[in-house]
């Protein structure tokens, strides 16, 4: 468990640093910004109690907000994602349920499963984020377009991050 904790702490710091120092400075096409930090919520253990998930999501979002000066924006979107996650996991559950100790990552459930799971989660998170950012339903098409483009970029970045983490796990 301690080992678990340490690993998650490390991955959280790594994700945070990449997000803040690299991705936040990208400016793809003006407004596409990959939000890699959702990965941290996505890869928490399946058995994690849902209330803890919400607390962690709120903390993660708030930390992102402190770096981006958008207090509350990312916190709300990340809490929304954490609220959805149990439903997503139930929706994509294997036929005989999850084994104890399984993690929702590529090395446990395969690339296709992870892709489906991440795509839905990221779309939901980004849609919520961009609607709250715009704070209105005017120009909803633009928001939708932004959501789709940013989600795809985030998905690519998450897949690259997964390559790194799965290689690490195999070595251990």
């Amino acid at each position: 468990m301690i080992n678990h904790l340490g690993r998650y702490l490390l991955s959280f710091i790594a994700i945070l640093l990449v997000q803040v120092l690299v991705l936040n400075n990208l400016n793809l096409g003006g407004y596409i910004n990959p939000w890699l930090y959702v990965l941290f919520i996505l890869i928490l253990p399946v058995e994690m109690p849902n209330w803890l998930l919400l607390v962690l999501a709120f903390a993660t979002g708030l930390i992102m907000d402190t770096f981006l000066n958008t207090i509350g924006l990312h916190a709300s979107a990340t809490v929304f994602l954490a609220f959805l996650r149990p439903f997503l996991l139930r929706f994509f559950a294997p036929r005989d349920g999850y084994e104890p100790g399984s993690l929702p990552v590529t090395s446990h459930f395969g690339l296709g499963w992870f892709l489906k799971y991440t795509l839905l989660a990221v779309l939901a998170h980004h849609l919520f984020l961009f609607i709250v950012e715009a704070f209105s339903f005017e120009n909803f098409l633009a928001t939708l377009w932004k959501t789709i483009l940013s989600s795809l970029v985030t998905l690519v970045v998450i897949m690259i991050a997964q390559l790194f983490s799965s290689r690490e796990r195999r070595r251990i």
Binding site: N50, W51, L54, A57, F58, G61, D65, T70, I71, G72, L73, A75, S76, V79, F80, F83, P86, V132
Partner: peptide
Amino acid sequence: LFFLFLLFETISFYLL
């Protein structure tokens, strides 16, 4: 869970 979710969203939006 839902109430916790609502609580966090309320805090977030209040901050926002």
